[in-house]
């Protein structure tokens, strides 16, 4: 062990923290090295001087001042201290608070009929099943799956959903009824076309036929001696009969339609299948509808059609 090693171990030597082999080697060196002995003694003195420093005493009223500071711990300060707890305590507290809030919100949602009803009424009109599915899905989001079971347990809520959807469907009907112009525009593209020797007389025949069926000509466009576009209205239940009459009673004059909507084709087929359709000879037999028929027609839904009468060339 050399002088440098001894100086490095001097503190441990004075604090008696050397291993036995280190201690013996160091003391062996000290026995032959007066400089290292001096250094060791100087360090021992320094340590003794430090240990001899008198303790610094507090003021006489130290305790009472500590007590006053403790008394000053107002409720506000205590809350502040609680909020400033270490993060490992605060985070679980916050998570617990969030969970409690979620449970409370869910509880309020299902215990407050107005909230639940409002939610169900806001379901878009997609049919009863879709409405119910959406309501259940919405409930799941709010209540973490419990709602599905609740939905099963309370069919009343289902019927509410169904009612909401039905209301929505009805509102769609109202919308379409309120826009006849749109309907007419749609059927104008697929107008029935007939070729007549005399456009004017053909128009009269059509008018008579419609009157028999409880319908009428709403509008006519064009001149009587040229092509004529008629917009007619008749009960929906007589539509097939009207079209069949046109075909059967004026077969020579009615060409195959260029284009017809599928619905019209379906109705025509249905008319063909029916044996009780009025014969062509009866078309001219105009008869006034009875009061009962009139009242029935009054309540019947009407349909508008377009008929284009082309002069034969």
């Amino acid at each position: 062990m050399n002088c440098q090693d001894v100086r490095a171990l001097s503190s441990d030597y004075l604090d008696r923290r050397l291993a036995p082999h280190e201690l013996s080697a160091l003391e062996e060196h000290l026995g032959v090295c007066p400089d290292c002995r001096r250094e060791i003694e100087a360090l021992r003195t320094t340590i003794s001087l430090l240990g001899g420093l008198e303790p610094v005493e507090t003021s006489a009223d130290f305790l009472s001042r500590v007590q006053r500071k403790l008394e000053k711990e107002s409720p506000l300060n205590r809350i502040r201290g609680w909020l400033l707890e270490p993060i490992k305590i605060k985070v679980p507290l916050e998570i617990t608070a969030l969970l409690l809030l979620g449970i409370l919100a869910s509880h309020l949602y299902y215990r407050t009929p107005e909230l639940a009803k409002e939610s169900l009424l806001s379901v878009p009109p997609e049919g009863p099943q879709a409405a119910r599915d959406k309501a259940v899905e919405k409930g799941r989001e709010a209540g973490g799956g419990k709602v599905y079971e609740r939905d099963r347990a309370e069919p009343k809520r289902r019927s509410e959903a169904a009612e909401a959807a039905a209301r929505a469907e009805k509102s769609l009907d109202v919308v379409s009824e309120a826009k006849p112009e749109t309907m007419a525009a749609g059927s104008r593209a697929a107008a029935e076309e007939v070729v007549a020797d005399d456009v004017a007389s053909y128009e009269k025949k059509v008018g008579a036929l419609l009157a028999q069926m409880g319908g009428k000509i709403l509008r006519q466009e064009g001149a009587a001696d040229s092509a004529l576009l008629l917009t007619v209205e008749l009960p929906q239940s007589r539509q097939a009969e009207f079209l069949a009459s046109l075909k059967e009673g004026m077969a020579a004059e009615i060409p195959a339609p260029k284009s017809k909507p599928q619905a019209l084709q379906g109705l025509k087929k249905e008319a063909e299948d029916k044996r009780d359709l009025p014969a062509a000879g009866r078309i001219a037999e105009s008869r006034a509808p009875s009061a009962l028929e009139q009242s029935r027609r009054k309540d019947q839904p009407m349909v508008q059609l377009q008929l284009r009468i082309l002069p034969k060339k």
Partner: peptide, 8 residues
């Protein structure tokens, strides 16, 4: 510091 004794 040589040989100085510890004292208050």
């Amino acid at each position: 510091l040589d040989g100085r004794r510890s004292e208050r």
